[in-house]
Simulated scan of single mutants.
Amino acid sequence: MTSGPKLVSILRQGSYLIASIHTALDDTQMDRFREDLIEQIGRHRSRGVVIDVAALDVLDSFGTRTLRTIGEVARLRGALTVVVGIQPDVALAMVALGMSTGAIATALDLEEGLEYLNGRLAGGAVSRPAGRVPPP
């Protein structure tokens, strides 16, 4: 058993899961996060997932690919995913290195991410997001 602060938290809010990454994760920890989150989507029959990466000052290619994988698997299981809190320096580095979140929507913060899910899921059907949340 390890002690110390939690690296990731996954909280349930109604039909949504809110997953916050609190510190940089190595590849093994990122794989574990993916497995745990995907398992909880099924267990809670979640319709939406918010992944908060605001605490990260680096997001490498493996992390970015893992987020895309989570989003695609979640979609196949009936849940829509939005990534929130990408820091400006992280976004600049991702663009410079040609990395993206693919078809996963992004939002500025948790509040905007929840608004996005509420708007997209109000009609019932989950469809593929088209990138960043449009302004109201």
Rank of each mutant, 00 (worst) to 15 (best):
T2D: 12
S3G: 15
G4V: 09
K6I: 08
L7Y: 10
S9H: 07
S9P: 06
I10P: 02
I10K: 05
I10T: 09
Q13R: 11
I18P: 02
A19S: 13
H22F: 15
H22N: 13
H22A: 15
T23I: 09
T23E: 15
A24N: 14
L25W: 12
L25Y: 11
L25M: 11
D26Y: 06
D26A: 10
D27P: 08
D27H: 15
T28D: 12
M30T: 04
D31N: 11
D31A: 13
R32I: 14
R32K: 10
F33N: 02
R34H: 10
E35V: 13
D36C: 07
I38F: 04
I38D: 02
I38Y: 07
E39S: 14
Q40W: 05
Q40A: 10
I41Y: 00
G42D: 07
R43F: 02
R47Y: 00
R47P: 03
G48K: 05
V49P: 04
A55Y: 01
A55G: 01
A55Q: 11
V58Q: 13
L59N: 01
D60F: 06
S61C: 05
S61E: 09
F62R: 12
T64V: 08
T64P: 01
T66E: 02
T69S: 11
T69W: 08
T69E: 10
T69C: 05
I70R: 03
E72P: 00
V73T: 13
V73E: 05
A74C: 11
L76G: 12
R77C: 02
T81K: 05
V83Y: 05
V83I: 14
V84P: 04
I86K: 00
P88R: 03
L92P: 00
A93T: 15
M94P: 00
A96E: 14
L97H: 07
S100I: 04
G102A: 05
G102S: 08
T106Y: 00
A107S: 08
A107Y: 01
L108F: 04
D109A: 04
G113H: 04
G119F: 12
R120Y: 09
R120A: 14
A122L: 13
A122F: 12
G123S: 14
G123H: 09
A125Q: 15
A125F: 14
V126S: 08
S127I: 14
P135V: 15
P136V: 11
